[in-house]
Design a protein around this nucleic acid. Structure first.
Lengths: 116, 116
DNA sequence: CATTCTTATCGTCTTTTGACGATAACACGG
DNA sequence: CCGTGTTATCGTCAAAAGACGATAAGAATG
């Protein structure tokens, strides 16, 4: 039997609705921030990964690799980009790494696009 | 006196809230569509252009050029990318070209990001 | 400890992006 | 018709992105 992913430490169900209002939504800084977030989503594979995580169809890196027609190193790189942009978080579980959506980043993206 | 931009044909104030529900929000096609939209926004200059258009601080290509530290050809290229992605529309007015936000595309973007 | 499984990183290559100047195309004013 | 102002396109170049295989690192398992 395949080992189950232990951790529920990533994306706990009781995650509070984060405050984003303390950060500015305008100005050059906000423009750069939105551009960075959008750029991270600006690739079909990364959108696909976010959807897989969102629907909990995949959680561990190797599962994501199975779902995509890409090499493991490529998927790892996409995950790194998403993580760097603040759109996913990860939690180590022994050898494996569990990924999940970073809803703070996602909210931030929506807030920034909302005022265009 | 500088010639006024004649056209209000672009982005009329009474633009109806468009229907987007007929298009799918899931599947590989939707993923590609979201990636394409996000990629178009994934550059600081293009975010800046969208904001300028949104606040009506600029409307004509030459005005946008004045607002950005970029060459005219570069700005034109950014506008082309935004237009191609369906995020801005343009209307000819004699020699000038008036740009405006394509709210259909923007709604589409928000709808696609909403379900992540 | 050796093996296996899982993930990140590195090196390399090709393709795409971003920027610019030069130039073409076009409408308008004299 | 001639110059002027405005925008799009082209050619070129440097930089970044995207993909892969190989490999390193680390945890679990026997």
């Amino acid at each position: 039997m395949a080992k189950r992913f232990k951790g529920d430490m990533c994306c706990p169900p009781g995650a509070p609705a984060a405050e984003v209002s303390w950060q500015t939504l305008e100005g050059a800084e906000a423009d750069d921030e939105l551009a960075k977030l959008a750029k991270a989503i600006g690739h079909p594979a990364r959108v696909r990964i976010l959807r897989l995580l969102s629907r909990k169809e995949a959680r561990v890196c190797s599962q994501i690799v199975d779902e995509l027609p890409l090499a493991q190193s490529t998927v790892s790189e996409h995950l790194r980009i998403l993580k760097e942009a603040g759109l996913v978080r990860c939690a180590q579980d022994g050898t494996r790494v569990g990924y999940c959506i970073d809803f703070d980043g996602l909210r931030r993206l929506k807030a920034l696009t909302a005022i265009i």
